[in-house]
Structures are given as C-alpha cells and as structure tokens.
Amino acid sequence: MNYELFQQINGLAGHSSLLDHFMVFLSNSVPYVVVLLLFYLWFIGNKQKGIEIRYTALYAVFSSAIALFINVIIHMVYYHPRPFVAHHVHKLVPHAADSSFVSDHAILVFAIAWTLLLRNTRGKYIILLWATMVGLSRVYVGVHYPFDVIGSIVLSFATSSLVIYFSNKLEPLVQLLFRIYHRINKFEKNNKEIYR
C-alpha cells in the first residue's frame, strides 16, 4: 500500500515542468521558510499578539527539536531504504541514500503546524495547508514514501502535544531564554546609544 500510494503521487512528476519546479521549490525551501516563520512569530507577530506568540514560537522549536532527536534514534535502529534506492522513481532532487523513515522536513513543518493549531494561533490553517503540501512534495520529488510523512505527522503531533501539556515544567527554561534575549536586546540598545 505504501509503495502503491508513492507510485500514484510520484507518478505525477515529469508531466508538467511548472508543477515539477513548484514541488522542488516547496520541498527545498523548508529550512528557510521555517526560520522566517519562527522569526516572524518572535519579532513581528509579538507586536500583534503580545508575549503569547513568543511562547508559541518557543514551543514549536522545542517540539521540532525533540521530534528530530527521536528521529535520529529511529534512523540509528531502523533503516528503511528510500524509494529511489529500492525502485525506479522520478527523482527530482539529489538526496543521500540514508533511511527514509521518518521525514525530517515533514517533522519541521508539522511540528510548527500542530503547535499553532494546539495553541489556536492565527494563521494555523494556512500553516497546516503549507505543511501538508510540503509532505506531499517530499513524496512527489521521489525521496520519501507516504508513510514516512505520516510517521512525521504522528511524531510531531505527539511532541507538540507533550510540549504544551508539560508547558508548566518548561516555564523555567522559557523564562531563562526570555532573560537571555532581553539582556542581548538591552546590550544592543546600550551600544547604539553609546555610538550615536
């Protein structure tokens, strides 16, 4: 079933240059979009929603970090060959032949999407749609099976839920990060005043 679903999605590749380029762009842009989105939540979104949006940004980072760490362990104990290793596929992006289960890209985007959904943050459905499109793009470009993406969805939902559930336990760490940020911000402001 996993391979059959993969064939249906990946089989669309190679028929439309425009769609191929869009899916490659979507797939490759994940790290940059994630960084920009987190910066937006921390700096710009904070002006609109107050301190709560910064909590959301931190929880998304915590969830991503925990899920990625778990994925490192999964890759160490379980190797699942990527589609292009085991089959003839439409491979649109270069990729190492490491284990495919689960997808790091999908973990990143869904950890953010789930965190925004669970925190009822504005724009949550747009981010969920983006995450879903990224998950599909990883299959479309030939580097992941659908179950790799589904595994990422489940794992990132679990870590996002746990981070929010145990948010009280994380409060000392959050406050420490806030203090570090405010000290850096204050230091920069003082330097600007000195050199005026």
Rank of each mutant, 00 (worst) to 15 (best):
E188S: 13
L41H: 02
N71R: 09
F39G: 15
R196F: 15
V139I: 15
V85N: 02
A57R: 03
H105T: 09
F147P: 02
N28D: 13
S29T: 07
I66Y: 07
L12R: 05
K124A: 01
P83D: 09
K47G: 09
G123Y: 05
M1Y: 14
I107W: 05
A131G: 10
G151Q: 04
A57T: 04
I126N: 04
F101N: 00
T121I: 07
H105Y: 11
G14K: 12
L155V: 10
H182S: 15
G135I: 04
K192D: 13
I44G: 03
A106R: 04
M133I: 08
N190Q: 12
L108N: 11
A113L: 06
T121D: 03
Y3P: 00
H15D: 08
T121V: 09
L129P: 01
I127R: 03
S156C: 06
L176T: 10
W114R: 01
K186H: 13
L155H: 06
E171Q: 15
N168I: 02
H95L: 08
Y195D: 09
H95A: 14
Y32L: 10
T159P: 10
H95T: 12
L108R: 09
V72R: 10
D148F: 01
A113N: 08
F69Y: 12
H95W: 11
S103P: 07
S16T: 03
W42N: 04
F43Q: 01
A106E: 09
V143F: 04
P146I: 03
D20K: 10
Q8K: 15
S137Y: 08
I194F: 15
R179I: 13
N46Y: 12
H15F: 11
S152L: 09
L129H: 03
T132E: 00
S167T: 10
F22S: 07
F6K: 04
H21C: 11
A65G: 10
H88I: 07
A113V: 07
Y59I: 01
M23P: 05
P83W: 07
S137P: 13
V149W: 00
V174E: 02
K189I: 07
L118T: 02
T121L: 03
Y78P: 10
H90L: 10
D104S: 15
L92K: 03
R122P: 00
S99R: 09
I74R: 06
P31G: 09
L36D: 00
V34H: 02
S64N: 11
S16D: 10
Y125D: 09
W114A: 01
A13T: 02
E188Y: 13
R183Q: 14
N10R: 05
I53V: 12
G50K: 12
P146C: 08
K91A: 14
I112V: 14
L155G: 07
E193L: 12
V102C: 08
V61R: 02
I194S: 11
K124Q: 12
G123I: 05
R119M: 08
K192M: 13
I74C: 04
S152I: 07
Y40F: 15
